[in-house]
């Protein structure tokens, strides 16, 4: 009895189906958008930013003093209540949010760009240049940056722009260190040796091979940096050196609230909680982005 099931298959079809391990290709964005943490944190940030940018829709003037309405608790008319000068606290939170978010993001960008360039070049070149860069960095790190900030802010015209630049210029060192150590380990990988062996130039190597490899660490450093910048700005405002009245930032509002902690604690709670939410969100996004940037499973 002949059984067709026991016939030899055509060997020509062998091995033709090359197996690849992931069937669907996932881009960084795809992975990011399928990460529940990232989507939640991202939505929170985007929502906050949009709401802050829509501050002009508020019926209240953020700087309009009204002694009569001073220290009203949250109500339908004043969602977040009013402050010690009778200004609508919700409107002030929105305008203050614009400053805090701008300071956080922009000074982070300055710090990250500077840190990445110094870190990659230093790590890539090694030797004398690396030594020089690192000593320079040590000097910067050994300066008590908070005092520098206070002094500079006192001498320069206090403005949001100046604050962003100064915070940025004083917080790139951590990024540079992280990037440098990552660069040094990636530099020894065989794909970097290959690039050198065919004569790829330094800047091309840095931008094409190094930075994408270092990106996960940069992202984490960046998210921590945003948090730091917002906190530094808060601290400066807390000491009265940041945003100048009547303009507000979350930090300056927290500062003003200190006299009313017992009587009107909501004045501290609203900006405080918002700072917390923003910083947490940036950290969560940083973590998720780092995971999404890693090309392996």
């Amino acid at each position: 009895m002949h059984d067709v099931r026991y016939e030899l298959l055509n060997p020509a079809t062998l091995g033709s189906k090359q197996v690849t391990y992931t069937e669907r290709r996932e881009t960084v964005l795809y992975r990011l958008f399928h990460d529940r943490r990232a989507v939640t944190a991202g939505s929170v940030l985007v929502l906050l930013t949009i709401i802050c940018l829509l501050a002009f829709l508020s019926p209240y003037d953020p700087n309009q003093l009204s002694i009569m309405d001073k220290l009203h608790a949250p109500s339908w008319a004043h969602w977040f209540g009013t402050d010690d000068h009778g200004r609508d606290y919700f409107t002030r939170i929105l305008y203050g949010g614009q400053v805090s978010l701008a300071v956080g993001l922009l000074s982070m960008l300055i710090a990250v760009s500077l840190g990445t360039i110094v870190g990659t070049v230093s790590g890539y070149l090694g030797g004398v240049i690396d030594g020089l860069f690192m000593r320079f960095l040590d000097v910067f790190m050994s300066l008590p940056s908070f005092f520098i900030l206070m002094i500079l802010n006192a001498y320069l015209k206090p403005s949001v722009q100046n604050m962003i630049i100064i915070i940025g210029l004083l917080s790139w060192m951590d990024v540079a260190r992280i990037v440098r150590s990552q660069t040094m380990s990636i530099k020894e990988q065989e794909f970097m040796l290959y690039a050198r062996s065919i004569g790829v130039r330094m800047w091309r190597t840095i931008f094409k091979h190094l930075i994408p490899g270092v990106m996960p660490s940069i992202v984490v450093a960046a998210s921590l940096n945003v948090a730091n910048a917002i906190l530094t700005e808060s601290a400066l405002s807390f000491l009265g050196l940041g945003v100048q009245p009547p303009a507000s930032s979350w930090g300056s509002m927290l500062n003003n609230a200190q006299g009313y902690l017992g009587t009107a604690s909501y004045l501290a709670i609203f900006p405080g909680v918002l700072i917390l939410i923003v910083i947490l969100s940036f950290n969560v996004i940083g973590d998720a982005l780092r995971d999404a940037l890693e090309p392996t499973e």
Partner: peptide
């Protein structure tokens, strides 16, 4: 695994 740049 190390000889090909994973990002390209």
């Amino acid at each position: 695994f190390a000889s090909l740049d994973p990002h390209l």
